[in-house]
Amino acid sequence: MQMKMFLALRSAGVAEAEARSVADAVRDEVKSAVQDLREDLATKGDVQRSESKLAAELERRLGDHLKWTIVIVFGGFGLFGTIVALSKAL
């Protein structure tokens, strides 16, 4: 790209030193922009690791939710049984 820009500027009548300077400046700007973008991009491996962590966390939380749901259901049955037994005793 740098060479194409240089040649285009030269064919437009721009002096060699100025054409080279402009082409170099554009190259440096593009490199900087690409470097900035690379810092924000995730690789396939990054996505897979994040997905694995999320899946493990979801599985753990669903297990906890199921455990507490069972505790609450059996606790409710126990409380209901206690209330029925007490009401018969009265």
Rank of each mutant, 00 (worst) to 15 (best):
L66W: 09
R60P: 06
A23Q: 06
A15D: 01
A55K: 12
L58T: 10
I70K: 15
V84Q: 00
K88T: 00
F6T: 01
T82E: 01
V47N: 10
V26C: 00
M1H: 06
D36E: 13
L86C: 04
K67L: 14
A25Y: 03
G78T: 05
G63K: 01
S21V: 03
I83V: 09
M5E: 04
K4S: 02
S21I: 04
A23D: 00
I72H: 15
E39L: 14
L37G: 04
K67V: 07
S11F: 07
T82S: 08
T43E: 11
R10A: 07
R61M: 04
K31T: 07
L41V: 11
L54N: 05
V30L: 12
T43I: 04
K44C: 06
A19M: 07
F80G: 11
G45T: 05
A85L: 07
D46Y: 09
T82G: 00
K31E: 07
S32C: 06
A33T: 09
A12K: 11
V71S: 10
Q35D: 14
T82V: 13
L58R: 09
T43N: 05
L90A: 04
S52Q: 13
T69R: 14
I72V: 15
A33D: 01
Q2G: 06
E39F: 14
S87R: 06
L7M: 10
M3D: 00
K88G: 05
G81C: 08
H65I: 11
G63P: 03
V34K: 00
H65K: 02
S50L: 12
A55E: 10
I83T: 04
D46W: 06
L62T: 05
L90R: 09
F74Y: 12
E59L: 07
R60L: 08
D40C: 15
A25I: 08
R61E: 04
S50Q: 11
R38P: 00
A85V: 10
G13R: 02
K88H: 04
I70E: 12
L90Q: 07
E39M: 15
S11Y: 03
Q48I: 14
T43F: 06
Q2C: 02
M5K: 11
E18Y: 06
A42C: 08
V30C: 04
D24L: 14
A25C: 01
F77D: 10
L90G: 02
L86F: 12
K67M: 10
L9R: 02
L41Q: 12
I83P: 01
R27P: 00
I72K: 15
L66I: 09
G76R: 09
M5L: 13
H65Y: 05
A85I: 08
L66M: 10
A8N: 01
E16S: 03
M3A: 08
K4V: 05
